[in-house]
Design a protein around this nucleic acid. Structure first.
Lengths: 188, 188
DNA sequence: TCATTCATGTAAGTGGTTACATGATTCA
DNA sequence: TGAATCATGTAACCACTTACATGAATGA
């Protein structure tokens, strides 16, 4: 029924994986799936709006998720079926799909001679501020999580991803400071 | 001629930027542009094969680059024009286009309860090994660059990007170790 | 001579984003 | 009553990847 299938073979297993995974925690509406991906997975994953509903439709067609009438009129509650859980495990064990890197900041730094040292320093200063905000966010999440009692079996894993964000931010911050200092000595 | 233009307005300024930037260092063939992006920008940028030639064609049509006959039969040498250099500066000053995050490892760690602590540990161990290889690569590049005499005006900026890679790798390594230790205490 | 590298391009497909369109429910 | 939120979907578009197709030059 959906055009996302050719001869029964699913494409875009990435989105399938994310949606199945979110539904494995608790049954919810498509709208809630979107919110969960944005709010819980936001700092390392994203699915666009127009991606989630078609995916839910195709997963339903494949009987990997079950679509039941929701509490609100016109709304649905999606939940994992047994084969959906099997498929989820299959996808989780699949090697990660690596997306080609595209770091706009690094591109600009690499060609910094063309841009000039002051402009590069400005870019890095801006980045540095964003990193500080990120760091504060991660700390806030960590504090919130330590008082949370929902989903105790998931929490330690969630904490690992927050810690990863923190480590990444700390590394970025150290580089920003080092780079800004170095840039002061660059010819201009 | 190309379908990449609507009413003279360029789309995909990202690829335009990368190609113009590479050509700003030295004139070269499309093939060489591809190699430069892969070998010099590889750890923070990528352009696919089928992207570079159409981009060069559209940039030539816009007179941002000049297409001259190359040394080999059938080959061309592309070089920046004056307006190409202006356009490059314009694009470098443009805010970075941020691509939505998609970190397969983090997704798997987040849903680690479903995957199980041992499988998660295996994934992280694998990542750790890749990070070590990366770290060695960055060190090798840094050593090579310190003896290199080409493009002395670019070198300090190039060194900054290598340093960024190093900092990122060091942070990732620290997280891997911390996570692996934490995972030992997870229920199984 | 034959494999590899250098070199240029096209075509089809695909994963994904953005904007549009619609309407119910909740709550101030 | 009216704004914000919850909710579901479609359509158009687009950037990008992969695979295909071709051939010259180099060097073992």
């Amino acid at each position: 029924m959906s055009t996302r299938y050719i001869g029964g073979m699913a494409r875009s297993s990435q989105t399938d994986l994310a949606v199945l995974a979110v539904l494995s925690v608790a049954p919810m509406s498509g709208y809630a799936v979107r919110e969960a991906i944005r709010d819980q997975l936001g700092h390392f994953w994203s699915e666009s709006f127009g991606q989630i509903y078609p995916t839910l439709a195709s997963l339903t067609a494949d009987e990997l998720v079950d679509k039941a009438v929701g509490e609100r009129a016109g709304s649905s509650t999606f939940s994992l079926t047994a084969s959906g859980r099997t498929r989820l495990l299959e996808l989780l064990q699949t090697p990660e799909v690596t997306t080609p890197p595209r770091n706009g900041l690094m591109l600009r730094v690499f060609f910094g001679h063309t841009l000039g040292p002051d402009a590069v320093a400005a870019l890095i200063t801006e980045t540095r501020e964003q990193v500080l905000v990120q760091l504060a966010t991660f700390d806030a999440i960590a504090r919130m999580m330590s008082t949370e009692t929902d989903y105790p079996e998931h929490r330690p894993y969630w904490a690992l991803t927050v810690s990863a964000g923190r480590h990444s931010a700390v590394g970025a911050l150290a580089w920003c400071d080092e780079a800004l200092e170095a840039l002061e000595g660059f010819p201009r």
